[in-house]
């Protein structure tokens, strides 16, 4: 295996468009607009993720897609050193993280915009969007600039 190439532009993995379901389509439509949206319960005001037809907390069916701040922190992360698909081999190393949004939900995402060795649990991050295909964007998070 060849050593990871040094880079000044931190890598993100080859990102393939998701295949939305009718329930998740509004989430991905939001990403395409570069807007992070999560369902919020009109009854108990808490957020639910992943996409649902029922509030995870109070079971209300009145859940409304709501823009969120895009601010959060790294709950945990892992740096991929090995490619699980040939197409990812030149993308190593890249970071898969769990980001906890200020509003509560945790998202699987990529941490970008910094060297993988600098990523830390608890690091404040902000959402960015990556247009991966016509009308399709994926979220990622980068360290917040203070």
């Amino acid at each position: 295996m060849s050593a990871p190439q040094p880079t000044t532009e931190p890598m993100r993995p080859r990102r393939v468009p998701p295949q939305p379901t009718p329930e998740s389509q509004p989430f991905w439509d939001g990403c395409a607009r570069h807007e992070l949206v999560v369902q919020r319960c009109s009854s108990c005001e808490r957020f639910s993720f992943p996409p649902t037809n029922r509030c995870q907390h109070c079971w209300s069916d009145d859940v409304v897609w709501t823009p969120v701040s895009g601010r959060g922190e790294v709950f945990t992360f892992t740096v991929y050193r090995r490619a699980y698909a040939a197409e990812l081999a030149d993308q190593l190393p890249y970071v898969v993280g769990i980001v906890e949004l200020d509003e509560g939900p945790r998202l699987i995402t990529n941490i970008v915009g910094c060297e993988p060795s600098r990523v830390r649990v608890g690091m404040p991050v902000d959402v960015v969007f990556d247009d991966v295909a016509d009308g399709v964007a994926l979220h990622a998070f980068r360290p917040r600039e203070e």
């Binding site: 993100r12 993995p13 080859r14 990102r15 393939v16 468009p17 998701p18 295949q19 939305p20 379901t21 998740s24 992943p50 709950f75 945990t76 992360f77 892992t78 991929y80 699980y84 698909a85 990812l88 993308q91 890249y94 898969v96 769990i98 699987i108 995402t109 990529n110 830390r120 649990v121 608890g122 991966v132 994926l138």
Partner: peptide, 29 residues
């Protein structure tokens, strides 16, 4: 199907990563 939508797009493959996420959190705590 569920993992294809929420993991594959972010290059999240394989069970090692799932447990590595836990290990990394344990290390930090």
């Amino acid at each position: 199907n569920r993992a294809r939508e929420w993991r594959d797009s972010f290059g999240y493959f394989g069970e090692p990563a799932t447990h590595a996420l836990g290990a990394q959190r344990h290390m930090a705590m």
